[in-house]
Nucleic acid binder design. Sequence first.
DNA 1: CCATAAGTTGATGACGGTCTCAACTTTGAC
DNA 2: GTCAAAGTTGAGACCGTCATCAACTTATGG
Lengths: 194, 194
Amino acid sequence: MKTEGKPTLRRDARRNQERLLAAAAEAFREKGLAVPLEEIAQRAGVSAGTLYNRFGGREALIDAVMPELVAERMNEAMRRAEAVDDPWESFVTYVTVLCEQQADDPAFRDAISRQLQDAPELTARCTAELAKSVQLLERAQRAGTLRADVTSDDLLLLIFTNALIVRETVESHPDAWRRTLSFSLAGLRAGCGS
Amino acid sequence: MKTEGKPTLRRDARRNQERLLAAAAEAFREKGLAVPLEEIAQRAGVSAGTLYNRFGGREALIDAVMPELVAERMNEAMRRAEAVDDPWESFVTYVTVLCEQQADDPAFRDAISRQLQDAPELTARCTAELAKSVQLLERAQRAGTLRADVTSDDLLLLIFTNALIVRETVESHPDAWRRTLSFSLAGLRAGCGS
DNA sequence: CCATAAGTTGATGACGGTCTCAACTTTGAC
DNA sequence: GTCAAAGTTGAGACCGTCATCAACTTATGG
């Protein structure tokens, strides 16, 4: 039996793969995850066919590129939140930073708001990172400032809906999402809702 | 000089126009405002060309069909709100009914959430109806239960964002919008936010 | 340096939708 | 009943995008 090590990609193939990944990351950040695959191929100096050879289509490419970027963003938000003492303000900081990042980065917001069913890596990374944030949430609840009935699903929903809002409004009303977010956050404070 | 009355549409042309309007209303309600124009033409028993003859394109058709439907919906919401004594609850009822209607009717939610720049009638009707609702808003503010800094723009934003949320979530999570709406409404209560 | 497997290419087709127009049909005034 | 104007038709041009594949090119082991 052949002691099979790596599927050994030819050197030029590997080079093209790396170029494609880089080009995809760039294009995604500039124009969102719906950018034409042709454009990514062009940026990589490669034909569309090659892209389909290396990856199988858009979702696979997304799944290869986005998890790292998403993790970075979420870690950054966590870092900033952890620098805040007050539990409530820390929670607010976390959410707000994530939303700001969505406003700045089409790729990040699409990764969270589009339904990507064939991007298991990305999904996994998202849930993993989000799991960390539950500590922030619970700390604020223990401090009595965050409503007790709020779950991590609610947090996800909040981030998700902000992504939708940002996507549809950043161009014409760059700060609209801040307003809607401020309402939601106010509603999450203990003593405000049911 | 010719005393010109009406542009006098031929009888068959008028009949087709009416069929198209009916078909459009039907198709819009079933599948939203992005339904293929071909499908509308088919339902009306007419070719696509005729649709383009009578109206100039999708937006014109929307502008001919939707204002009435939108006004109906908003009047219904107003009617239900006016039946509630408490100013805050009345306001909440108004918003909630509108959001429920969005969940039920793709046409209504698209009319509010898609950017229709070439549908002046629709836009006019929306702003006109929304203007009426300001009374509800101000009454709740006078009662001291609605935050004083909330404007009619905020109300519009709330309705608009709910439409986005509904559009993206009704299928998979039919009640998600209720959760986000409850957060926002809680945040609008006096004493809760800044 | 050669053979050949691995990889790339770009022309090509499918798709789903919009929009047009020359040829045909219908209406209605006379 | 006739005829011109009004209206309709449906085939096809067009758009942007995805996806494929036979023919070509290149890397690599011997």
